[in-house]
């Protein structure tokens, strides 16, 4: 049997780490954002897997993970919109989306 909770959790973990690698190692801001989207999807998979394996009996207890996933999708959409708007604004000002050149986060 492959369809144990563990399989989904390991899949989520692997996806998360791949996304993390992308977010940490890419110069292109859009690429960094794509890495973050992968991480968010990995988390969603984990949450939904937990929800499906839940044995709770209270009202809605077995769907809490899915509700969380819905909220994450909502927030991720908002985040993507804002982040991409920022990328475009930065590109307009500096003619580049290379995050290695953006080093304003000090002092």
């Amino acid at each position: 049997m492959l369809l144990t909770l563990n399989s989904f959790l390991i899949l989520g973990a692997v996806l998360f780490c791949i996304g993390l690698f992308g977010a940490l190692s890419k110069r292109n801001a859009v690429s960094v954002l794509m890495g973050i989207e992968i991480m968010l999807n990995a988390v969603n998979i984990t949450l939904v897997a937990f929800a499906s394996s839940s044995t709770g009996t209270a009202h809605g207890a077995r769907l809490t993970g899915q509700i969380f996933a819905i909220f994450i999708i909502t927030v991720a959409a908002a985040e993507a919109a804002v982040a991409l708007a920022m990328i475009i604004a930065i590109y307009r000002r500096r003619n580049s989306v290379d995050v290695s050149e953006i080093n304003m986060m000090k002092w």
Binding site: L20, A23, L24, V32, V99, S100, I102, N103
Partner: peptide
Amino acid sequence: AETGRLQNYGAAFF
């Protein structure tokens, strides 16, 4: 250590 680059901070965090 404080480079101002977000990815360095992210690497340190993780």
